[in-house]
Design a binder for these strands. Structure first.
Length: 477
RNA sequence: GCCGGGAUAGCCUAGAGGCGAGGCGGCGGACUGCAGAUCCGCUUUACGGGGGUUCAACUCCCCCUCCCGGCUCCA
C-alpha cells in the first residue's frame, strides 16, 4: 500500500513517491538552543520520529538530518542576560536537548549540522545568491530581495501586498523593501562574528537550513518538516533562497508540519510562559506515557495539554502493557497447537485484521490516533481469549505478541517489555518471594503478605492473585 | 484585512453519503482475605445552529455562532 502524506505546499494529501526509489531523505528543523526543550518541541520531534520509524518499517532507507541553530539573536540576548558566553550557552542547551530526545526514545538523526560548523558553506551560498542577482548588500547586512523571486508565498499562501498591510513588516535600516529578509548580519560590537566578503558578521536565520539541508540531502529531496509556526516566514524564505540559488524546482517534494500544543486554549510557548519542560514531565511520567500522549492525536491537529490528558494516556498504555503481560503469562501454560478451535480462529482473525487496519491508518498521513484503535482491539481480544480458553494455543499467542512488537517498533513503545531478556535470576527471585508469600497467605498472615506485595510494587513488580495462583507483571509505565 | 484549522455521547480522540466508533471515567454483576488484573452488562437513539442537495447527511453545498492559529521571535 502507498503512503499518503498531507503536503502543506499543495494543501492536499498526496501519494508519497520519493525521488530515489527505496530511499527517503528528510530534514526536520531543529531547535534554537537557548532554553530547555518543552512539550511543544517534544510533540514535533516525537511525531517526526514516528513518521521516520514508519517509513523505515515500510522498507525505506531513511536519511535524516536535523539542524541546530547555535548562533542567533536569541542566544546572544540570553547570553547577555546570564553573563554566559553565547557559545557555552548554546552547547549547554544543545546537550540538554539531545538528552531529552534520548529520554523520549526519539531515534537520533544521521547528521545534526550546527550553524557554527557550516559558516563557510553559508557564505558560499549567499555569494551565489548575490552573483545571481537575488541578494544585495545593505549597510547592516546582506538581504534577499523577495520581489525578484516570482514564486514567493507559495507555501504559506502569502500575498505580498497583503503582507505589507499586515503591519508587522519592519522596514529595517539596510533593506530596500520591507519584505526583504536578511541573509548575513553584520556584527555589532561585542557580538560573535565570522569573517566574510561583507565584513565580520553572522548568518541570518533562514539561510542555515537551505545551506545545510542541501549539503547533506542534495539540491532536491523528499521531506522537510517542522512545527506549524515555521511555515511562514521560515520555510517560505528557505524555498525562495534555495530555488533561487539552484534553479531547481521543487526543492522539497513534501512539506510536513505539526500542530501546536495548546494550554487552556493558547499555544504553548516560551513567550507566554505557559510551557512545561520535558524534564519536569519526565519526573512525573515515563517517556512512553509522553509518547503515547502525543500519538493519541494526529500530528497536524492541535494537542491540548492537561495533566488529566496525560493521566489518560498513562491508563491507556497501562492497559496495553497488561495485555502484553497477560500474553506472557498465558504462554507459560500454552499448548502445542495440535488443533485449533473456534477461539483460535477468532483471535487470529482479530490480529490479522487489526494489523491491516493499523497499516491503513498509518498509510493515511500517519494517522496515529486512528491506528490506536486496532491496538486496543487486539488487547481486548487477547484478554477475552485468555479468560475464555483453559489451554491457550502457543501459536496464536505468539502472533499477538508479534503484533505488539511491531507496534512497539513503529511507535517506540513497549521497550520495557521486549528489550529485556536474560534476567532469569531476577525472575527466580520473584518466584521465590511469591512462594514465600503464598505460604504466608495460607497461614493467613496477610499483613506480611501484603507488605511483600507492596514492596515489590514499589520495585515495579505487580503481584496478582487469581484462581490458579499468583502471577506477576512488570509495571513499565 | 488576508490565509489556515476546529466544534463528535460525562471526558479524550478517530472517521465518514446508507453498514461495529476506540479509549478513559462512572455504575452493576462474576472472581477475591484485601488489592490488582480480567470477563459480562449498562452509561451510548454522539456528531455546534439554521437552511439546502439526496431515496438517505454526522459526512456534500450555503449561511450563521463560537474557538484557535499564522501574517518576519517560535517546534
Amino acid at each position: 500500500m502507498d503512503v499518503k502524506v498531507y503536503n502543506t505546499l499543495t494543501r492536499e494529501k498526496e501519494v508519497f513517491v520519493p525521488l530515489r526509489e527505496g530511499e527517503v531523505r528528510m530534514y526536520v528543523c531543529g531547535p534554537t538552543v537557548y532554553d530547555y526543550t518543552h512539550l511543544g518541541h517534544a510533540r514535533t520531534y516525537v511525531a517526526f520520529d514516528v513518521i521516520r520509524r514508519y517509513l523505515e518499517h515500510k522498507g525505506y532507507s531513511v536519511l535524516m538530518v536535523m539542524n541546530f541553530t547555535d548562533i542567533d539573536d536569541k542566544i546572544i540576548r540570553r547570553a547577555n542576560e546570564t553573563g554566559e558566553d553565547p557559545k557555552e550557552l548554546a552547547n549547554r542547551f544543545l546537550k540538554f536537548f539531545l538528552e531529552d530526545m534520548e529520554a523520549l526514545k526519539v531515534k537520533p538523526a544521521d547528521v545534526y549540522p550546527r550553524v557554527t560548523e557550516h559558516i563557510q558553506e553559508i557564505i558560499d551560498f549567499v555569494k551565489k545568491l548575490e552573483e545571481k542577482g537575488y541578494a544585495y548588500e545593505g549597510n547592516d547586512g546582506v538581504y534577499f530581495e523577495v520581489r525578484k523571486f516570482e514564486d514567493y508565498g507559495k507555501l504559506g499562501k502569502i500575498n505580498l501586498e497583503e503582507l505589507k498591510k499586515g503591519a508587522r513588516v519592519e522596514p529595517g535600516e539596510g533593506k530596500r523593501n520591507p519584505e526583504d529578509f536578511v541573509l548575513w548580519k553584520k556584527a555589532k560590537p561585542g557580538e560573535p562574528k565570522w569573517d566574510s566578503p561583507w565584513g565580520e558578521g553572522r548568518p541570518g536565520w533562514h539561510i542555515e537550513c537551505s545551506t545545510m539541508s542541501t549539503k547533506y540531502l542534495g539540491e532536491q529531496f523528499d521531506i522537510h518538516g517542522g512545527g506549524n509556526d515555521l511555515i511562514f516566514p521560515h520555510h517560505e524564505n528557505e524555498i525562495a533562497q534555495t530555488e533561487a540559488c539552484t534553479g531547481k524546482k521543487p526543492w522539497v517534494r513534501y512539506w510536513l508540519h505539526t500542530g501546536f500544543v495548546m494550554v487552556r486554549g493558547e499555544k504553548m510557548s516560551k513567550s507566554l510562559g505557559n510551557f512545561v519542560t520535558i524534564r519536569e514531565l519526565l519526573e512525573r511520567y515515563s517517556p512512553e506515557v509522553l509518547r503515547f500522549f502525543v500519538l493519541q492525536r494526529h500530528y497536524r491537529s492541535p494537542l491540548d495539554y492537561t495533566e488529566e490528558g496525560i493521566q489518560h494516556a498513562k491508563n491507556n498504555l497501562e492497559r496495553l502493557y497488561h495485555a502484553i503481560e497477560n500474553l506472557r503469562i498465558a504462554l507459560e501454560k500454552a499448548e502445542m497447537p495440535f488443533k485449533w478451535g473456534e477461539e483460535e480462529f477468532e483471535l487470529y482473525e482479530s490480529i490479522r485484521s487489526a494489523g491491516k487496519r493499523f497499516h491503513e491508518a498509518m498509510d493515511d498521513d500517519f494517522n496515529t490516533a486512528e491506528a490506536m484503535k486496532p491496538i486496543f482491539e487486539v488487547a481486548n481480544a487477547v484478554n477475552a481469549y485468555i479468560t475464555k480458553v483453559e489451554k491457550p494455543k502457543a501459536s496464536v499467542l505468539r502472533k499477538a505478541l508479534e503484533f505488539f512488537r511491531m507496534i512497539g517498533e513503529v511507535f517506540g513503545l513497549f521497550e520495557g517489555y521486549f528489550k529485556e531478556e536474560g534476567e532469569s535470576r531476577e525472575e527466580e527471585l520473584i518466584e521465590l518471594l511469591i512462594q514465600v508469600r503464598s505460604e504466608l497467605r495460607k497461614q493467613r498472615n496477610f499483613a506480611l503478605a501484603d507488605e511483600i506485595r507492596a514492596k515489590l510494587r514499589e520495585m515495579g513488580i505487580q503481584l496478582e492473585d487469581g484462581p490458579q495462583g499468583t502471577i506477576w507483571k512488570r509495571i513499565n509505565v
